[in-house]
Amino acid sequence: MFIAIVHGIVLAFGLILPLGAQNVFVFQQGALQPRLYQALPVVITAALCDTLLIALAVIGVSVVVFTIPMLQMCLYLIGFCFLVYMGWSVWNTSSSTDAKEQREFMPARKQILFACSVSLLNPHAILDTIGVIGTNSLQYNGVEKLAFTLACIIVSWLWFIGLALLGKMLGKLDTNGKWMNRINKASAVMIWLVSLYIAYQLVV
């Protein structure tokens, strides 16, 4: 069982470490929200979405999505449209000191909606979860498979909590908002790149 746990931890870190739309959005909200607890909706939503994808990958249900062409096309199209809008919204977020009084922080409902979009409407991320975690889980049974799955899920939760904390630390250091404005632009570009990848998958 120890090997299964270590295996799950290593795989989960390998999948979650690369910079992606989900990671930059959690980091951004951690930095922008006036209190850390106000970023909890995005942290919890992202972690729950990953938990769902990991569980579905391990039991093999998520593979069904990519065996039905019409369902796959709908997922790609919805994901593309929503990520384009999300990128535009993030791009126009201001973090300057002058705008601090007028700035409206993203409410919990919008955080949840956006977090779901970057987590569940990214076919590339879903395929990674199925291909890597789902495939590797096949070598385990019973308690070992459960330990492997829980290890992956725990890494995901700890990672998103850590990202929000890191974002909050940067937000406190960046008193004039200069670096956060750059992060917002970089986040938007990252999200648009994901949407372009999805558009490419639609036409090929």
Score class of each variant (00 low, 15 high):
residue 2 F to R: 11
residue 3 I to V: 13
residue 3 I to W: 13
residue 4 A to K: 00
residue 7 H to T: 05
residue 8 G to H: 01
residue 12 A to D: 02
residue 16 I to N: 03
residue 16 I to T: 06
residue 17 L to F: 15
residue 21 A to Q: 00
residue 30 G to K: 00
residue 31 A to G: 04
residue 31 A to K: 07
residue 32 L to D: 11
residue 32 L to H: 12
residue 34 P to Q: 09
residue 34 P to R: 07
residue 34 P to K: 06
residue 35 R to D: 15
residue 41 P to G: 10
residue 41 P to A: 13
residue 41 P to R: 09
residue 43 V to Q: 06
residue 45 T to C: 03
residue 47 A to F: 05
residue 47 A to Y: 02
residue 52 L to S: 09
residue 53 L to H: 08
residue 57 A to V: 06
residue 61 V to S: 14
residue 62 S to H: 10
residue 67 T to E: 14
residue 67 T to F: 06
residue 68 I to R: 11
residue 70 M to T: 07
residue 71 L to F: 04
residue 71 L to S: 12
residue 71 L to P: 02
residue 72 Q to H: 15
residue 72 Q to P: 10
residue 73 M to F: 13
residue 77 L to V: 13
residue 78 I to T: 14
residue 82 F to S: 05
residue 83 L to T: 09
residue 83 L to R: 01
residue 83 L to W: 02
residue 90 V to T: 00
residue 90 V to W: 04
residue 92 N to H: 14
residue 96 S to Q: 13
residue 101 E to Y: 08
residue 102 Q to C: 13
residue 104 E to N: 10
residue 107 P to I: 04
residue 111 Q to F: 05
residue 112 I to C: 04
residue 113 L to H: 10
residue 114 F to V: 07
residue 116 C to R: 09
residue 116 C to T: 05
residue 117 S to N: 13
residue 118 V to H: 02
residue 118 V to A: 04
residue 119 S to I: 00
residue 120 L to I: 11
residue 120 L to M: 01
residue 123 P to K: 03
residue 124 H to M: 15
residue 128 D to R: 10
residue 129 T to H: 07
residue 130 I to M: 07
residue 131 G to R: 05
residue 133 I to Y: 02
residue 133 I to T: 00
residue 135 T to M: 12
residue 136 N to K: 08
residue 136 N to Y: 14
residue 137 S to R: 10
residue 138 L to K: 13
residue 139 Q to W: 04
residue 140 Y to M: 02
residue 143 V to R: 11
residue 145 K to P: 04
residue 146 L to N: 06
residue 147 A to L: 05
residue 150 L to N: 04
residue 153 I to T: 00
residue 160 F to I: 05
residue 161 I to D: 02
residue 162 G to H: 09
residue 164 A to W: 04
residue 169 M to F: 13
residue 169 M to K: 15
residue 173 L to G: 10
residue 173 L to C: 15
residue 175 T to V: 15
residue 176 N to M: 11
residue 188 A to C: 10
residue 188 A to K: 05
residue 190 M to S: 08
residue 191 I to Q: 01
residue 196 L to S: 10
residue 197 Y to H: 06
residue 198 I to L: 09
residue 200 Y to F: 12
residue 201 Q to P: 10
